[in-house]
Amino acid sequence: MTGKIPIAKTYKLFIDGAFPRSESGRTFSVNNPEGELIANVSQASRKDFREAVRAARAAQLSWASRTAYNRGQILYRVAEMLESRKIEFVELLKSIGVNSRSATREVEDSIQRWVWYAGWSDKYSQVLGSVNPVSGPYFNFTVPEPTGVVGIIAPTEPSMLGLISRLVPAIVSGNTVVVVSEGQSSLTSVTIGEVLATSDVPAGVVNILTGDQKDLLPWMVGHLDLNAVDISGISPETDLTLLEETASNVKRVVSRQVNEESLELISDFLEMKTVWHPIGR
């Protein structure tokens, strides 16, 4: 009888809504805690990184110019997709060594976190923006706008909640992102990419590269078309002098160890714009 041999999934990169292999042809292996191979995962190169930034830049303006309500709807729909694949995520986390109870909890928390941030789409600008009582006959207001294209080093632990906690606050305001995910957490990240590919999130808004953060970080900090980087997920051994290159285009550098729901993670990737206009007849 055929059909008993499981078909294994190929874990590929997620760039511009598609799933290419690394142009370098390289992969790395991810094992379970028993040391058995789970998958060979694509190892992203500098060129893959540049392609991802290009896709993110191309998608940014139109993502940001959607209405806040529409972005909220699209992101809420992602939560629906996650909910429907709950069992898959629990199994995936278990395969990389998370115990059953923690895995279920992490998946539930991740979905809740996604919903929490999605709901901010049409509210953060009311909370963070203002009408300013200037001393003169001018109407003056401040609105938050997305910073642009953000590079994110995904936290490796917890792999699902960690990535979602950094990803959603960045995109809810209209930023687009390039995520670098390494090691075992790559499996969760790619699977989240698969959820996004079947959602209504436009291609290029989220790009996910699996690979070695040590390889990719130098390209990330130096890339002139990235406006900001979230380095909260970098490994403690990272040589921080690498970060000097973020000065080349005055990138916003965020390193914030926050593991709960936080409005600050949204404001980290916002720019405040103030508009003046005279009042008169």
């Binding site: 300013n132 200037v134 405040m272 103030t274 003046w276």
Partner: peptide, 9 residues
């Protein structure tokens, strides 16, 4: 135009 109540940057 500048004002202390008006964010600048």
């Amino acid at each position: 135009k500048f004002d202390p109540t008006s964010p600048f940057g």
